[in-house]
C-alpha cells in the first residue's frame, strides 16, 4: 500500500469535461465519465482511485475550480 493516499471530489455540475485534469494527472487516476451532468458534459471522475496520491495536479490545472483534493499520510506502513 502506498504511503500517501489521496482522494478528490469533483463538483460534477460545475465540471465541463475539458479533459485537462485527465491529461495532467501523473498517476493516471482520472477519466471522463460515460455519464453526463445536467449541462450534457461528461464530467471527470476517479476511475482508478487506488493510485491517487493527492498531488493536486488536477486541481491546479482545473479551469473551473471543480476539484477538491484530500491527502492522508499513512504512518503505520
Amino acid at each position: 500500500m502506498a504511503k500517501v493516499k489521496g482522494a478528490i471530489v469533483v463538483n460534477t455540475e460545475r465540471c465541463k469535461g475539458c479533459n485537462l485534469c485527465v491529461v495532467a494527472c501523473p498517476a493516471k487516476v482520472l477519466s471522463l465519465s460515460p455519464d453526463s451532468n445536467l449541462k450534457g458534459y461528461n464530467f471527470s471522475y476517479m476511475s482508478n482511485a487506488d493510485s491517487c496520491v493527492g498531488c493536486a495536479a488536477c486541481a491546479y490545472v482545473c479551469p473551473d475550480a471543480c476539484i477538491t483534493v484530500y491527502k492522508v499520510k499513512n504512518k503505520t506502513e
Binding site: R14, Y41, A56, A59, P63, D64, V69, V72
Partner: peptide
C-alpha cells in the same frame, strides 16, 4: 485532510467560458 479547494473569493456562479479556457 484537505489539500486544495476552490477559494472563497471565487463564487459558485458557473463560468460561461468554453471548457478548458485559459480565462
Amino acid at each position: 485532510n484537505l489539500v486544495y479547494a476552490k477559494t472563497k473569493v471565487m463564487n459558485d456562479t458557473p463560468m460561461h467560458y468554453c471548457p478548458g479556457c485559459s480565462h
